[in-house]
Structure formats: C-alpha cells, structure tokens
Design a protein around this nucleic acid. Structure first.
Lengths: 160, 160
DNA sequence: AACCTCAAAGAATAAATATGCAATTATGAA
DNA sequence: TTCATAATTGCATATTTATTCTTTGAGGTT
C-alpha cells in the first residue's frame, strides 16, 4: 500500500536524522509529517523494519535502523566456500575472503554473537572483527593465509 | 562486586548460546545457574551491557549482545585525519584507512545510521559497508584512492 | 569498632511496547 | 463488477520493560 510505504520511508528518515527514544516520540514526529497512526501500528512498522532500541550516548535509549538485506557486501574476487549443513546453532552460513578481509555471513541477528565468540578466542590470525546484523567482518593479520584463518576458526565454528 | 560481575558473565554466556526473547525468559535461565534476581535488576544489567532486543529469524524477538568497546579495531599503518569539529548530528568522529579498508569511528550508536546513509548513496568508490555500534567499516573499490573516497563521502558527511 | 559513602538490589509501579480481535480497506481473480 | 482473499489498522488490553524509592550491605577511612 502506498500510505504504508511512504510512512516506512518517513520512519527511516526520522530515525536517521533524530535521536528517538520511544515510540510515542516517533509518533509525534510522524504526526508533524502528516502521518496519523496509533502506537500499535508503529510497533508493527518497527518490527517489520527490524528497528532496534539500543542504549546510546549518556545511557539513553535510542531507536536505530538495522541494515536492510540488499546492502550486504559481495566480495569481488572472493573465494567462496559452500555453507556446511546447519547442525550448529551459531547461525554460520558462509565465509568469503578478499585480501586481508574475511566476510562471514550468518543468519539474521547471529552476527554479533558469533563475533563475540571470535573476539573471545583472541586468535592471532585475526586482529579485529566487526559485526552487523547478519555479517561479520574479520581483519586478518599480516602474513596469514586464508587457510590458516579457516583452521583457526574451526574451533569456534565447527561447521565452517 | 563479585556477584554482579559473574552474573553479567552468565548473561553474556546465555545470550550467546541461546535465543532469549524476553527478560523473564532470561531470568529463568539465570535461575538455573543459581542466580537469584528480579526483573528490575536484570533490566539494569541489560542496560549496562548494552544488550539490545532485535528482531531475529521468523520475526521473533531476541536479545543480542552488542560489542564491548575494547574490541575496536586499531589500524596498523592507518593514515589518520583529525576529527572535525562536531557541528553535525551524524556522529562522525574520525576516519582511518588501511589498504582497501576505511574505518569510520562514530559516537556510540551512530554507526548503523551512518552506514545506512552511505549504503543509500551507492557510491562507486565503496563496495560494501558494515556497522557495529560506533564503528563503520567500508570496503573500498579497487583502483580507488583514499582521497577519492573522502571526496565521495563528503556529500554524506560534510564535516569529514 | 564506628562511621561514611556508594554500588547494588528488591518491591511496587509507571511507562513502554506487543498483540488478539474485529473492522476496514486494498488487491486480485473470475 | 463482484466476490474472495489478504493486508492494514485501531482499540483495548496483555505483556514486557524501565524507573522511583527505599533498604541493604560491601569497602574504605579515621
């Protein structure tokens, strides 16, 4: 529907330019733009947009957008490996390499947990990680082969 | 205090191994581990850990860990640029380069919004982004200079 | 010990958010 | 168009989560 789509756009715009801490607050911003809706509908909209309420600066709550699926990074000369059968619950789907970067793709919402585990192991092969919602990027140490990275990761992700 | 710290660890562990959808649920998992606390305390714990409730697979809600600050990537031979005076609300703090990667550091919780904007512009200089809480990583296209990236980003981040 | 200070936590409650249900409206097929 | 089906929404409410206020107790300091 047209109304809903433009409202979702408006929500995206508002959330990316203002610090919104509650649905009521967002509701009144939307009202300024001419959108008339109830909190119930807004709750559903946010769920659909997969917006999350985080803890921002000064410990204040804040609604932030998460990444839409289509913006996922696709490696240029990435050596792809077939995703193993899903027997673990770590959400792992695939890994790709591009130079000193590895990109792990996970099921939605699993990325940060996986990155957390990888960080915890403090592998010498990996100097840093960053996680989105369904993507983990690993920065690989110098003089380290992709194979070595895979071997190191196997302790954490047996199904890699 | 000792009790609290081990409880926070327990929370991290539980959240990274199970799909928890509500505080009550987490509370009962903690009870199994011998932690006795109320929902009020748990709410405060989650706030302190900056845990967020996201929308996971099948549209179900799920609490996930966000990254602790200490795992932030620090570039080896990164060419640093002084952070401009904060006149915008985009949260931009600094940008560093390392080979085909650029790392943008933002104020807490601003990263995903910024990445969202960068994605939206679909700049040819940037083939992909990933955002944590206060860090955005950009994968730079081949044969693209750092200067070109900066120029491209200026439309989105005037204070870069 | 006696005192102070401050983090931690519970109880109760406020505030915020999600959802079941019914009504309405859009979409599509015949 | 007309009917059937599905999507959207509001209302009311359940559920969930945050917070105020108060008490407790751990560590320090004298």
């Amino acid at each position: 529907m047209k109304v809903k789509n433009s409202r979702l756009d408006a929500i995206r715009l508002i959330l990316s330019t203002q610090e919104i801490g509650s649905q009521e607050e967002l509701l009144s911003e939307l009202a300024k733009e001419g959108f008339k809706l109830t909190q119930a509908t807004l709750s559903r909209d946010l769920h659909q947009l997969r917006v999350v309420k985080t803890v921002g600066v000064q410990g204040r709550y804040r609604y932030v957008l998460t990444r839409p699926q289509q913006y996922r990074h696709e490696g240029e000369h990435g050596e792809t490996r077939p995703a193993a059968v899903q027997q673990e619950t770590n959400g792992y789907l695939s890994i790709k390499f591009s130079g000193n970067i590895a990109v792990i793709h996970t099921k939605p919402s699993y990325a940060s947990t996986l990155a957390y585990h990888i960080d915890n192991y403090d592998l010498p092969e990996i100097i840093g990680t960053i996680a989105g919602d369904d993507t983990v990027m690993l920065i690989i140490a110098e003089n380290t082969t992709h194979t070595a990275v895979l071997r190191a990761l196997r302790t954490i992700i047996p199904n890699i």
